[in-house]
Structure formats: C-alpha cells, structure tokens
Nucleic acid binder design. Structure first.
Lengths: 200, 200
DNA sequence: GCCTTTTTGTGAGCACGCTCATTTTTCGGC
DNA sequence: GCCGAAAAATGAGCGTGCTCACAAAAAGGC
C-alpha cells in the first residue's frame, strides 16, 4: 500500500507539473487535457482519476501555492487597518503571481463567493482563510462588530474585482492594480469605520 | 433585398424566441445549440450564421431587454445620491429579472469590466449606458469631479457583485440582494463624498 | 427569362472535456 | 510463488459547441 501511495503521489505531481508548464507556455484554454496527459506520460482517462475536471487542476495549482507555510510576520503591528489589509491583500497577490495569466477560471469557480461550499472543496478554504485573516486584522483595531456577513461579502467582491482587473492589467508592473486595491480598501475601511461610529 | 432582409429578421427572431423558451424551461447549460436550431426550424450551421456563439444568444436576449424605450421618469429629483443610485440599479435588476436564473454567462463575458470593447460589441453598451447614467446622477449632486475611472471601476465591481449574488439568492423575494445593494451603494457614496471633501 | 454574383442554408465532421467497460497492475493471505 | 480481490490505468467513444466545403436560393443586369 505504501509503494502504491507513493506512485499515486508521483503521478499526481507529474500531472500538476505538466499542467503548470503547459498552462504557462500555451495558456489554459489552448491546453487540452490530452496534451496534459501526454506530457505526464499517462492516458487521458487516468488524468480524470486524479482530477475531476480540467479546472480542478488549475485550482489545485493555485491552492497548493497557498499551502506553503506562509511565514506570517508575527503579529507585526500596522499603523492602520487599511495598511494592514493592504499588506494582507498584496501578499495574496504575491502568492498568485505565477498564475496571474490564467487565473480567470479559478475566479469564476473556486473563488466565486456564490459557489456553495462542498465536501473537500479545496477552493473554498482559500476564500475562508483569506477572510479569516481579514476578521482577525479588523479585531485588532476593535472593529469586530462591524464585520457582518454582508461586510465580508462586499470585501470579497472588491477583492475579486481587483484580481479580475489584475489578470488583464497591461500597465508595466501592474501598478494600476495596486492603485485600485488601495482605493478599494480605502473605501471599505472608511465605510467600516462609519458604520462603527453610528452603531456606538 | 427587402424580402431577404425581412426573412433574415424573422429567422433571427425565431432563434431568439426558441432560445428564450428553452433557456427558461431547461436552463442555459442543459440547452444545446442543436435543440435551439431544431426548435427554430433551422440547421445547426444556420444558427451560427446569426450568432457567433451560444453565449452571444443569451447576451442578445439580455441586451434586447434593455433596448425597449426605458421610460425615464423625467428628471425626477431624488433626495440623495444614494437614493438615486439605488433606484437606478433596482431598475436594472427589474429589466434583468426574466434572465436572473441564467445570467452567469453574461456576467462572465459581456458585462465583465475587463473585456476590451470591440466593434459592434453589443454587450459593452449595457455597461456604458448604465455607467453614463451613474455619472449623470452624480453630476446632479455636484460630485462629477469624484467620478474618476477608478471610481467607476469600483462601482461596476460592486454592481456585478450584487448581480452575481442575485442569481443565487435563495431568500423568498430576493430581498437579501436589495439589502446588499443598499449597503454597497452606501459604502460607495460615502466614499465618494469623503474623497470630494478632501479634494476641495 | 436566362446567367452571374452574392447571400443564405446545410449537415457531416472536428476538437474538446469527460465517461466507462475493460484490461492491467498491485496487493495481502497462504 | 500463487491466487483471488482490490486498485489503478487505459483508450474507444459520447455529447458538446462550433466550422467549413458545398448546395440552394435570391438579387441584379441585360
């Protein structure tokens, strides 16, 4: 059972590596599942024993990139919530950077706020993890009451908007994306603060 | 040439009507282009002489629904910008209501803020028209300077977020969507006002 | 009314993502 | 080592959306 397990894991890696390379060079849409299987040295049917859909492959690539031990700059204090959220979101972008060009299918499915969470839906953990940290950061600023489900929904909408912009950002170092992120967070935070004042 | 033109228009309508009915009863994904063609009494190839893709059909349905003379309640004065924008966005929802269940492909393509405008891209006019009215309403409140491209980008992101939520809203009369819309616009408007104060 | 050109219609066929009956490999128990 | 069972691999094949070489029809000129 151990040898088999190792072999399975090895095949899984071969698929992911092959897909990663092909997506990078040829693009997500232009890469066929037959291409990936051939590059991984397996039959097309085998590929679907490991991943239920083509999108699941790219989703796994993205999620795996977040699974590396994210060395969290331990409890560093930020001057403002906006600053803290900016650092958090920018860190998210950094992790996603290798996948920027073919992020669209992931945004449409795994990261979509509307997809119902399902068993073992590895994509959902990405959103959940990101939002948990947002809540945590807001708490440190005494804004926990303001983070209603609706507020998180709006945060995620804005974040997805930034990511969606980013995938097509033609500015030299995608600096326009950072500007948009800055503005979006400024809007979000000032609204959070406003709501807090009123309710106190 | 006139007889031909009339026939063409008639075929076009037959396709749209057939598609409308099938989408409604069977759903967008489950309806095949062969189904649509058969229901319209034409060959599958002919269908693609009228619409380049299956998505273009649903997009056309949605855009056509906006093409009806939108009787604009002539220059009615709203108490606040937020109220005016709410009425405007709610009117948008009302137009889209018949297509709510299969709006997703339209959001992903024609209404996406990232898709570059192309010649005769009928989908773009939907966004442009909506945003033009937003600018107009903001002007009436003396906030024209605040409506930078980035601001419009954020407005559209929020609007798409609301629409995306709406397509899956399980609450009885989709009242949760209106709540989300309300909050989103409150955030947007208060941010607009804040930016205006600073820059003055 | 015929002939040429242009427009419109057609359905066999392609490439795709994905499935599934079958074959091949691996396993633990003896 | 051998055997039956369980797991994994296979590739022909299905149903898509969409294309394209060709056929039919209509328009325009004389």
């Amino acid at each position: 059972m151990r040898v088999t397990a190792e072999a399975k894991e090895s095949t899984r890696r071969k698929i992911l590596d092959a897909a990663q390379g092909l997506f990078q060079t040829t693009g997500f849409e232009a890469t066929t599942t037959r291409d990936i299987a051939k590059a991984a040295g397996i039959a097309t049917g085998t590929l679907f024993n490991y991943f239920p859909t083509k999108e699941a492959i790219v989703t796994t690539l993205v999620v795996d990139s977040h699974a590396r031990p994210t060395r969290r700059l331990a409890n560093e204090q930020h001057e403002s919530l906006e600053e803290a959220l900016f650092a958090h979101a920018a860190a998210g972008l950094r992790l996603l950077k290798p996948y920027r060009k073919y992020l669209t299918p992931v945004l449409d499915t795994a990261m979509s706020p509307m997809v119902e969470a399902q068993r073992d839906d590895v994509g959902q953990s990405l959103r959940t993890d990101h939002l948990e940290r947002v809540v945590e950061l807001a708490r440190q600023q005494g804004l926990d009451a303001a983070l209603t489900p609706v507020a998180l929904q709006m945060y995620w909408t804005l974040y997805l908007g930034v990511l969606s912009f980013w995938t097509n950002d033609k500015s030299p170092k995608q600096e326009d994306t950072l500007a948009l992120l800055d503005q979006s967070l400024a809007m979000f935070v000032s609204w959070l603060r406003g709501g807090e004042e009123k309710s106190n």
